[in-house]
C-alpha cells in the first residue's frame, strides 16, 4: 500500500441513505486524505452519524459510491472494520468488564493474540492516562475517563482511520481539553481522524478540513479558515438592545455593516473592522445593553449557510 500524503482513504460519491421515506443522507460527495483530520459539522439530525455508520461499514448505503481504503463496504465489511477505530457517540463500554478487559476483549474480537494484546493494553492505558484505573469497573469512571477508554479501545487494532462521533459532547471544559490533546497526539502520529461534531470551537481546533451538513446535504466544504473567509467577514460585532428592541434597532444599523443577522437575543454585524463599527454605533446615539467585538467563527458560517444557529 502506498503511503503518499495525498492518498485518498475515504471516497464518497452521491452517497445516499434512506430509511423508508426519510432521506438521512442525500447524495453527498467528499474525500478524506491520509493523515488529515476531517470534520463533519452540523446540527443534530443533519446526517453526520448516519454518514459515520456507512463509513464504519455497519450500515449499508441506499445508493451512490463509497470506498474505504479502496475497498467496497458492501462486500468487504469485516476487512474494512479491521482498518478502522470506532469511538461511538455514547462510549458503549462493556460495563460488566474492568477497564483493561474492555480493551483486551475488543482486541480479541479482531482475532489479535493474547501475547500481542498484553503489551498493547498497557501502552493504550498509558496513552489514555488510565493506568491507575486499569482494574476499576468501566462504570466507575468519570465521563472524561470513559471517553478516553472508548478511544483507547478503538485504537487496539492499530487503525489507520479513527472515527469519532461527537467526541466531547457532555464533557466539562477541562476533560475536553485533555481529550483534544490526546487526539492531537494521534494526528501527529499520522492517524487519519474523522470527527463529527456540532461544536464550532471543536471543529476549528481539531479539523484540517470539514464539510458543513444540514438536512442530509453538504452546504460547504473547506478548511475552517477558508470557510470563514468565504462565508463570513473578518470580524463580528454583537450588540444587544433587549429582546423587543433588537428588530427595530437593526433597521437603523442597516448600511453600517457588510451584512446583518438579527437573532432573537442579539444583532450580529459582519465587518472587516469591528472596533471602528462599534464606535460608529455608539456615536450614532444608540446604546446597546452589551456589546462585543470578536473574530468570525464557523458558527457565523453556519448561520450564513442555513439561517439558523447550530446549538439550540
Amino acid at each position: 500500500m502506498s503511503q503518499s500524503a495525498n492518498d485518498v482513504v475515504i471516497q464518497a460519491k452521491g452517497l445516499t441513505k434512506k430509511y423508508k421515506d426519510f432521506v438521512a443522507v442525500d447524495g453527498i460527495d467528499f474525500e478524506v486524505k491520509r493523515g488529515e483530520s476531517f470534520g463533519l459539522l452540523g446540527p443534530n439530525g443533519a446526517g453526520k452519524s448516519t454518514t459515520m455508520k456507512m463509513i464504519s461499514s455497519v450500515s449499508q448505503r441506499t445508493s451512490g459510491e463509497l470506498k474505504i481504503l479502496g475497498k467496497e463496504p458492501n462486500t468487504h465489511g469485516p476487512e474494512i472494520r479491521a482498518h478502522l477505530g470506532v469511538v461511538p457517540q455514547k462510549d458503549l463500554l462493556d460495563r460488566e468488564l474492568k477497564v483493561w478487559e474492555n480493551i483486551f476483549t475488543y482486541g480479541r474480537y479482531f482475532g489479535l493474540s493474547r501475547k500481542f494484546l498484553k503489551g498493547k493494553v498497557d501502552e493504550l492505558l498509558e496513552f489514555a492516562q488510565l493506568t491507575e484505573k486499569r482494574n476499576a469497573k468501566a462504570d466507575d469512571l468519570s465521563g472524561g475517563m470513559q471517553r478516553r477508554l472508548a478511544i483507547a479501545r478503538g485504537l487496539v487494532n492499530e487503525p489507520e482511520i479513527l472515527l469519532l462521533d461527537e467526541p466531547t459532547t457532555g464533557l466539562d471544559p477541562q476533560a475536553r481539553h485533555v481529550l483534544w490533546d490526546r487526539l492531537f497526539r494521534l494526528k501527529e502520529q499520522g492517524v487519519t481522524l474523522v470527527i463529527t461534531t456540532h461544536y464550532m470551537d471543536e471543529a476549528e481546533q481539531l479539523c484540517d478540513r470539514l464539510i458543513v451538513m444540514d438536512n442530509g446535504k453538504i452546504m460547504a466544504e473547506g478548511s475552517p479558515a477558508e470557510l470563514i473567509k468565504q462565508y463570513s467577514s473578518k470580524e463580528v460585532v454583537e450588540v444587544r438592545f433587549g429582546t423587543d428592541k433588537n428588530e427595530k434597532t437593526a433597521e437603523k444599523l442597516a448600511g453600517l455593516a457588510d451584512r446583518i443577522e438579527v437573532l432573537p437575543d442579539r444583532i450580529l454585524l459582519y465587518t472587516a473592522k469591528g472596533e471602528e463599527l462599534l464606535a460608529q454605533i455608539l456615536e450614532s446615539g444608540l446604546h446597546p445593553v452589551t456589546s462585543l467585538v470578536r473574530r468570525s467563527s464557523l458558527e457565523d458560517v453556519f448561520l450564513r449557510l442555513t439561517g439558523r444557529t447550530l446549538v439550540d
Binding site: E79, A82, F110, G111, L112, F116, N157, E158
Partner: peptide, 8 residues
C-alpha cells in the same frame, strides 16, 4: 496491522 491481515 495484524487485525487487517487476519481479516483479509
Amino acid at each position: 496491522s495484524q487485525a487487517v491481515l487476519i481479516a483479509e
